[in-house]
Write a protein that binds this DNA or RNA. Structure first.
Lengths: 347, 347
DNA sequence: GTGAAAGCGCTAACAG
DNA sequence: CTGTTAGCGCTTTCAC
């Protein structure tokens, strides 16, 4: 249990009988070194279990730390986990390690986390902005050369690269699909009132699809909640409307769960449904769930590539990159509205 | 776009006209300082946007870096994401930041990641061991005082603290529940042959529940796959048996998805089902899915507390801590076996 | 209360 | 091919 000091470069040097710099050279394959010394250094390294102190190295080299700072609102959300996965896949080859933390959707906590990352001199900073957060405090670090990329939602108070899902287009496509099936009264249940960028965009997509089809926008069909149970209640409310919808679009995962649960409880198999964001069990539902699937891995990869390009000195204008969603038609969207339903079985 | 050097302690000192040490004192609230200097230092810090370089600090102080290294097999898996969330909740108050990486269930990649973390002098190391990985290389760092904790699965080749789900007991409870409902032929579909610790434990729980009830262990009822589709096929195979099971226990999430999908496709609503690990849509299925739920947040918290206790010098023997699972009875397990079928389970 | 010098572990810059 | 010196940004130690 002895707390032996971890060996240092000097320890290895002494063991071998060379200078510290020589050991450094061997380990970093910097400059030349004779096979023999090489051999003996490596042996000593193995014997002592030496591991170079990356902090000391980074500090001397002067550059940023070989880390990527990533702030997400919720570590347990698989969407962000998959985003992180995409980032790691890209930055790993550059020897960068992921520094991760959760803002818990709290601006203060986000800021504290970012400060910590800045103090650690991360190579790049990637942030999924918390609701209500401001990022003007990142101006100085950015000017000093720190690549900053926002993911999933644009940042506020700072002009920086941004990678988001094509929320608006995705919902537009989904709603158009329902309209093409004959639905004209389509409910929208989102995380409303829309405090979050993503929800605003998705609602806009809903509206644009209606407009494109020449359908009226009926405010009574648009509702929202902030929990699964809330979404369930809103589902009931929609279905109890004098002129109820024949189809529902759920604006995010949580809403989707509430809507699905409620439709199941109410045994309403006659309501068409599309949800935003895929779910693991989507295929096993009856009917299987049609979704507008996002591509979090690609979001992460794209953001990472963008950031690394900046790190390599890319000076192009800041961009907002849309990662396409994909309409996955499974079955829940194929139900025809009551009016159109009667006789003909669909193909 | 000028890449101005980030300001240093010396810059602040020069700005104020004091020594670097004075600035350091003010910032760390170490030693005394006159209100005036304090004031002026703080002003200069704000003006220059100075942020102390944590790497430099850590290197001088000599202790470990204020980071927690966490290795998981898959960043996109919400189970591990929630584990990470639990860890962060605990270590955040100590000012520790999460350094995270994915082994992709590859021992070599896991080892490389661990080496990187060691080189960064993480304060504690937490690992969800990849299948086939060996951890004897961690003996030296551990002896040198690095707390090491394994999560979800025990490590190999190293005696260290370990926090796992009560897999065996959890499955035992689930299977006993099915037996109590009158089922005597219960299929088990796992990630078999069981390469992973968790699967071995869960299978053991299955067997012990049968044994406890005096039921025979029928090998034809125990099967496995490594994919969702595989699980679906195995489900079909089980149901086509001459003497098929009336209930199925799915050994993990992936198996669960396959089984559920296949039962839905085959319209077999007469098969009781319990799966290990909860699913977001479990309540919305028909019938709602009974699960043996794990508690990943508690696993993470427990592991973090254990590691921090070691960091604080706890010298107790290494322990394996079981985090209880919870049988969540929803509906899919309440189906009774075909009344007509006599339970002639032999051979 | 404050400062000067030394040094954490490592590498850049120059020797030889 | 290898060693020496200096210094990254910070804190420790010891002075005043």
């Amino acid at each position: 249990m002895a707390a032996n000091r971890r060996p240092t470069l000097a320890d290895v040097a002494k063991e071998v009988g060379v200078s510290a710099k020589t050991v450094s050279r061997v380990l970093n394959e910097d400059g030349p070194s004779s096979p023999q010394t090489r051999e003996r250094v490596l042996a000593a390294v193995a014997k002592l279990g030496f591991q170079p102190n990356l902090m000391a190295r980074n500090i001397r080299v002067g550059g940023p730390d070989t880390t990527v700072g990533l702030v997400v609102p919720d570590l347990g959300n698989p969407f962000f986990g998959t985003v992180a996965s995409g980032i790691e896949d890209v930055v790993r080859s550059r020897g960068l390690t992921l520094l991760m933390g959760s803002s818990a959707e709290d601006p203060d906590r986000e800021k504290a986390l970012i400060q910590t990352f800045l103090a650690r001199r991360v190579s790049v900073l990637m942030v999924v902005p918390a609701f209500g957060a401001d990022h003007s405090h990142l101006k100085a670090p950015r000017t000093a050369g720190l690549p900053v990329v926002f993911l999933d939602r644009p940042g506020v108070g700072l002009s920086a690269d941004c990678v988001v899902s094509s929320n608006r287009t995705g919902v537009h496509e989904g709603v158009s699909h329902l309209i093409a099936r004959g639905h004209s009264r389509i409910g929208f249940i989102g995380d409303l009132p829309a405090k979050l960028y993503t929800q605003r965009e998705r609602l806009a997509g809903y509206r644009s699809a209606l407009a494109e089809a020449g359908l009226p926008y009926d405010r009574t069909l648009v509702t929202g909640a902030h929990s699964q149970d809330g979404a369930a209640s809103e589902t009931t409310a929609l279905l109890n409307l004098p002129n109820p919808p024949t189809a529902i679009f759920a604006g995010n995962n949580m809403m989707a769960l509430g809507v699905i649960a409620q439709l199941a409880r109410a045994r309403r198999k006659d309501i068409a449904l599309i949800t935003f964001d895929d779910l693991p069990l989507a295929e096993a539902l009856e009917p299987a769930l049609t979704v507008v699937a996002q591509d979090p891995a690609t979001i992460g990869e794209t953001a990472a590539k963008t950031a690394l390009a900046r790190l390599d000195g890319a000076h192009s204008r800041v961009r907002t990159i849309m990662v396409p969603t994909r309409l996955v038609i499974r079955g829940s969207s194929e139900l025809l509205p009551h009016a159109a339903r009667p006789t003909t079985a669909r193909n």
